[in-house]
Measured scan of single mutants.
Amino acid sequence: ETGKELVLALYDYQEKSPREVTMKKGDILTLLNSTNKDWWKVEVNDRQGFVPAAYVKKL
């Protein structure tokens, strides 16, 4: 879809709370919100949640 910003997972991340999502290094995720410098909201496999901003980079 146009207008979607994507990020690349630089590291594996295992969710530690229900508000977070698990990702694997190399995953491409849809970026939903990056206003917080530490935690970015992403969508992966129809799930939305937060990942550490340092673990992903914008494509």
Rank of each mutant, 00 (worst) to 15 (best):
Glu1Arg: 10
Thr2Gln: 14
Thr2Cys: 15
Gly3Gln: 15
Gly3His: 14
Glu5Leu: 11
Glu5Gly: 09
Leu6Gln: 09
Leu6Met: 09
Leu6Lys: 11
Val7Leu: 12
Val7Pro: 00
Leu8Gln: 12
Leu8Trp: 07
Leu8His: 04
Ala9His: 01
Ala9Ser: 05
Ala9Phe: 01
Ala9Gln: 00
Leu10Ala: 04
Tyr11Met: 10
Asp12Asn: 08
Asp12His: 05
Tyr13Val: 01
Tyr13Ser: 01
Tyr13Pro: 01
Glu15Ser: 15
Glu15Ala: 15
Lys16Met: 12
Lys16Val: 09
Ser17Lys: 07
Pro18Cys: 10
Pro18Trp: 10
Arg19Met: 13
Glu20Met: 05
Glu20Leu: 05
Glu20Trp: 03
Glu20Lys: 04
Glu20Ile: 04
Glu20Ala: 06
Val21Cys: 09
Thr22Gly: 08
Thr22Leu: 02
Met23Phe: 09
Lys24Gly: 05
Lys25Glu: 07
Gly26Gln: 02
Gly26Ile: 01
Asp27Gly: 04
Asp27Gln: 15
Ile28His: 05
Thr30Glu: 11
Leu31Cys: 07
Leu31Asp: 00
Leu31Gly: 01
Leu32Asn: 02
Leu32Ala: 03
Leu32Asp: 01
Asn33Thr: 08
Asn33Ala: 10
Asn33Lys: 07
Thr35Tyr: 09
Thr35Asn: 14
Thr35Gln: 15
Asn36Trp: 07
Asn36Val: 05
Lys37His: 12
Lys37Pro: 14
Lys37Leu: 10
Asp38Gly: 08
Asp38Lys: 12
Trp39Arg: 03
Trp40Tyr: 07
Trp40Thr: 03
Lys41Glu: 13
Val42Glu: 00
Val42Ile: 07
Val42Asp: 00
Glu43Ala: 11
Glu43Tyr: 06
Glu43Cys: 12
Val44Met: 15
Val44Lys: 15
Asn45Leu: 11
Asp46Phe: 09
Asp46Arg: 09
Asp46Asn: 14
Asp46Glu: 12
Arg47His: 08
Arg47Lys: 11
Arg47Leu: 07
Arg47Thr: 07
Gln48Cys: 11
Gln48Phe: 08
Gly49Glu: 01
Gly49Lys: 02
Phe50Asn: 04
Phe50Cys: 13
Val51Tyr: 01
Val51Cys: 04
Pro52Val: 02
Ala53Asp: 02
Ala53Leu: 02
Ala54Cys: 14
Lys57Arg: 13
Lys57Ile: 15
Lys58Tyr: 10
Lys58Phe: 10
Lys58Pro: 10
Lys58Cys: 11
Lys58Ser: 09
Leu59Tyr: 08
